[in-house]
Amino acid sequence: MVNERKKKEKKMMSSEKVLQVNNLKISFRTYGGEVEAVRGVDFDLYKGETLAIVGESGCGKSVTSNAIMGLIPQPPGIIKNGSILFKEKDLTKLSKTQLRKIQGVDISMIFQDPMTALNPTLTIGEQLTEGLRTHKKIGKKEAKEKAIDMLKLVGIPNPEERLKQFPHQFSGGMRQRIVIAIALICEPQVLIADEPTTALDVTIQAQILELFEEIQLKKGISIILITHDLGVVAKIADRIAVMYAGKIVEIGDKREIFYTPEHPYTKGLLNSVPRLDLMEEELQPIDGTPPDLFSPPKGCPFTARCDYAMEVCDYAYPFSTKISETHEVDCWLQDERANVLQAQNKIG
């Protein structure tokens, strides 16, 4: 426990932005029409932090992270608007060849299912070193040494022999460690983890999360962590972005989001999580379903499910309001005129 606290204190957090996502809009052309999967997402990622993106299934978390990774298939995907700035370059404007110099080198990704993320016909050694050898132009021997170091870092015993083995010779947890090693071998500045622990059982989950913390401490990388699991968020996130229907509706420090959530959707999410300290209160899943992204509403997308919805919510998307230096929320309740209205509602 003491150790853990020390870790947290030592963790480097700076105000240096490594990644800036501005008004990102992404759609997919399908037979049924155009799906507006991401509808204007803004956030910054700071050096050495872990930013968690949470939200219901289908809200656009994976699409956002794939866009940063340059993995949106085009077609059917279209980046309609916005920019992703990394090292003064807009990733959305780069050619495929230029992107490849960044993928896996500066920005890496960890996938959800370690059982399918590794190629069954190639050895672990090859899968570990191929990125390194492509990008860093180093020799076989050097690459192998680096691979052994990485396997040690992620906690795989007998790395030298393990390099010659194939994915099916490893358990799920081990495979996820290998996937992490692969993502980290070129020493990226940004690591995107799309539900990295969802496919693993609970004890392994905890180990993998610890590994994340340890690596962040050692390497000072920034992590974007996508998850459904608020328990995971509570454990390792520094900041939290709450996504709903293709937008970030609230973003803030972990404490701000957990203790003083402002958006009704965030509150709903937190209420739908079992909490040990509030045993007696019943769980309240949010009623209703998110809006259809084929024709998203022009107002606040949460209107249909929101207990506080007002007339204005229906026809105009709320402005973003700064609650604190770090805490921002998109909700009409923040408008000073809303207080009056809500008060009236309560009386009436």
Partner: peptide, 9 residues
């Protein structure tokens, strides 16, 4: 997808 994310040709 992972191979793509590694920036391989």
């Amino acid at each position: 997808k992972m191979a793509n994310a590694k920036g391989l040709s």
